[in-house]
């Protein structure tokens, strides 16, 4: 066990990916000598060479388009998009090409491309540096979309994502990059020859030593209200759970979705059947969002268990505001607890 920041955990996870498989490449803007603007790839070019850790021209569609070509040639590229708001020049390549080629080819082509995107707000940045674009990608079949909330998950999930034969959108909560946690870097993630290029295998099965990439997790057990969140909101929700326990003697069960596409909602359904109350929290705007999907599926699946409508706490349906206003925009402890209250007032 080591105590690492999320940034360092991701860095070590990427290092392990490069060590595991000579076909793994890292490509992006400033990922080489600089180590990326957030230093997530720090030191990797020095140790693995500029043939495997590639500073690319400043062209996001080019990053993803050439990664597709490299994958067709047998490589396993990890692409870094510098900020959430800069992924859109690559959107066409992601949704029309990367997501669909396996399907169009009748399964003959696989494109194991991982796209890392620092996302979310809360760092006082200028516009286009604080966005939460996850719903765009979840809406496209053929993509896997995951997000980590802790250093431990950062380390394991990036390795699982790179091992996956599917394209994975890997969202990193940038405002949690510098938060620390325990990471077991000796964990046996795959139980198979680490040099194998094979599929991810049953890493998510119950017998696997760590939670699979596409599994949600009950992070904090509770009995009164099910609170569902992911990525940067997890820390906020856990803080709210502390306050609820202290001030209201309410026991919140907190679930980290981790996988946004496909969703793993069985733990949510099981929880709601016990609690009868559900609150879904994310930074992204609420309109046609992950919380809309979760609310719909909880309602369809556990309607008779619900004591109140599923409540949602999200960013507003505005553009991400100037950073002097972001504290008012982002869901916080008060807003989450207010939603919890609403589920009791129905």
């Amino acid at each position: 066990m080591a105590t690492l920041t999320l940034a360092k955990a991701l860095n070590q996870g990427l290092r392990a990916c490069l060590e595991d498989d000579p076909k793994v490449l890292i490509m992006g803007e400033d990922v080489g000598k600089l180590g990326g603007v957030f230093r997530i790839t720090d030191g990797l070019q020095k140790d693995f060479g500029d043939d495997r850790v590639i500073d690319t021209p400043l062209a996001e569609s080019g990053i993803i388009g050439t990664a597709i070509g490299l994958a067709l040639r047998g490589f396993r590229p990890i692409c870094e998009i510098q900020f959430d708001g800069f992924v859109f020049p690559a959107f066409d390549q992601i949704v029309t090409q990367l997501a669909k080629m396996h399907y169009r080819s009748g399964g003959r082509v696989t494109l194991p491309v991982t796209i890392r995107i620092p996302y979310g707000g809360g760092i006082g940045a200028v516009e286009h540096h604080s966005e939460s674009p996850e719903a765009y990608f979840c809406h496209t079949a053929g993509l896997r979309v995951v997000t980590c909330a802790t250093p431990s998950d950062g380390y394991t999930m990036i390795r699982q994502a790179v091992r996956s034969d599917d394209p994975v959108i890997f969202l990193e909560p940038k405002r949690r990059y510098w938060e620390k946690g325990e990471v077991d870097t000796a964990v046996d993630l795959f139980g198979i020859d680490p040099t194998s290029h094979g599929p991810t295998g049953p890493a998510h099965a119950s017998a696997a030593p760590v939670l699979g990439l596409h599994r949600s997790r009950v992070t904090r057990p509770g009995t009164d209200v099910t609170v569902v969140a992911y990525g940067p909101m997890m820390a906020t929700v856990l803080a709210a759970a502390d306050v609820a326990a202290r001030d209201n003697q309410r026991s919140l069960e907190v679930i980290d979705l981790r996988t946004l596409s496909p969703l793993d909602l069985e733990p949510v359904f099981a929880s709601v059947r016990r609690t009868g109350r559900c609150v879904v929290v994310h930074e992204a705007p609420g309109n046609v969002s992950l919380s809309a999907e979760v609310a719909a599926r909880v309602t369809e699946t556990a309607f008779y268990s619900l004591e109140a409508p599923v409540a949602r706490v999200t960013g507003f349906d505005t553009p991400y505001p100037p950073s002097r206003l972001e504290d008012l925009y982002l869901p916080d402890v008060d807003r989450i607890l207010e939603a919890v209250d609403r589920t009791y007032e129905f």
Partner: peptide, 9 residues
């Protein structure tokens, strides 16, 4: 068929 490659998910 073949929407995604990893059938273990």
């Amino acid at each position: 068929a073949h929407v995604t490659a990893d059938g273990s998910v």
